[in-house]
Write a protein that binds this DNA or RNA. Structure first.
Lengths: 212, 212
DNA sequence: TGCGTTTTAGCTCGTACGTTCTAGAATGCC
DNA sequence: GGCATTCTAGAACGTACGAGCTAAAACGCA
């Protein structure tokens, strides 16, 4: 059994014996690999190690549990990546971001992709709350790319011939596309071709006008 | 009731009274909007109009029915689009392709996206047959884009500074990304920004070398 | 020590699912 | 006209699901 966690309530007779972080990690693994409908509450009980009553008491029903797991994933996986890449120079940040995505996608033996992208097509379309959460995370990623592009255009490492917002949004689209392709055709050549062209777009020499 | 269809068997006492095309269309609508798990056989019976026994007799079980519906969608929707765009000049073909995708995505009030992309994240990861079918369709789209790019590079309407295969694969990735984004954030500005940058990449003047 | 709470395992409930079966009506071919 | 086949509507079967409950054990605090 994992170590204690203090819990949030004022008066607690017996402290929780499970590590909420570890439980959320396990729930993320389940939902990530098998989706919302594909993960039963019994699966969650078996893989998190906590009992059913504890699950419902600590996290609410299955839907609320998925919501917390998705938040946990976004915060821990995507937020962390944005923070780490944000410390680099703008053009290098975008390069590092996609390099990590490629590495993760090609090393993903289960082909489970990105939980956020999976959620976008799994739960978000049929649940306004999930959709809002996914949309918010996508806006954050878009902002990251747009900020990088703006800064890169300012310091001359990224082409100025395309509006920063269009470039940022394009990178968001490419990211989503890679995450989809990688689940079906996890071929290095394919994914590297996709990002190579994206980088060629960024590195386009300044001062050249597009035809359209 | 729809008209007769001849059927494939040699000796048939009573011909099928339902139109197989119409039934497949209805099945596509169901699976497209609600996914595989989200569509029950009872839903299919209600929306196709045929009885359960006829469904199982004509199409096999639910999984086989989905397979046929997906094939029907790919052949009718994507194959048709590729054929129509293939008649245009290469650069115009890519433009028309994405213009149609944008129009469909923005006019999609149900936000059901593309059934092939949905299948890629819904059924393909957990079923090798589905995965093979989806991968095959993706290869076809990739081929379409690569052929367009190659022809466009030959006639000078598409930049020669990026390998044709990378450009084609990039367009495939962008297409997948748009289909995902459109389901969560069906905003014209966002989607148009994504494709505008892609077109800027194609229209890049020839003779300029990329840094990477 | 004993009260209050959380823990555990497992049972139970109602519902929905995929699939098969029943029974009868309809139709084409010999 | 009769045989074979397919049609229809609907019942039925077995399974799995989400959710709640029970009873007993574990633990902190007064």
């Amino acid at each position: 059994m994992p170590g204690l966690s203090p819990g949030a309530d004022d008066e607690m007779a017996r402290p929780r014996e499970f590590d909420e972080e570890a439980v959320l990690d396990a729930a993320v693994r389940c939902f990530w690999a098998h989706g919302y409908e594909g993960t039963s509450v019994r699966d969650l009980i078996a893989n998190t190690g906590i009992a059913g009553a504890s699950l419902y008491n600590a996290f609410g029903d299955k839907r609320a549990f998925y919501q917390k797991a998705l938040d946990h994933y976004v915060e821990g996986s995507i937020g962390d990546r944005i923070r780490r890449c944000g410390d680099l120079a703008p053009r290098a940040a975008i390069g590092a971001f996609f390099a990590e995505i490629l590495k993760r996608s090609l090393g993903d033996r289960q082909h489970k992709g990105c939980m956020l992208v999976n959620a976008a097509l799994d739960v978000a379309p049929h649940d306004p709350d999930f959709r809002k959460a996914v949309a918010g995370a996508l806006v954050d990623i878009e902002q990251f790319f747009c900020n990088c592009v703006k800064a890169g255009q300012a310091d001359g490492t990224i082409t100025r011939s395309v509006p920063a917002q269009d470039l940022g949004r394009h990178l968001l689209g490419v990211l989503m596309g890679i995450r989809v392709l990688a689940r079906i055709r996890p071929e290095r050549q394919l994914l590297e071709g996709v990002v190579a062209a994206a980088f060629a777009l960024l590195d386009r020499p300044v001062g050249e006008a597009a035809k359209q």
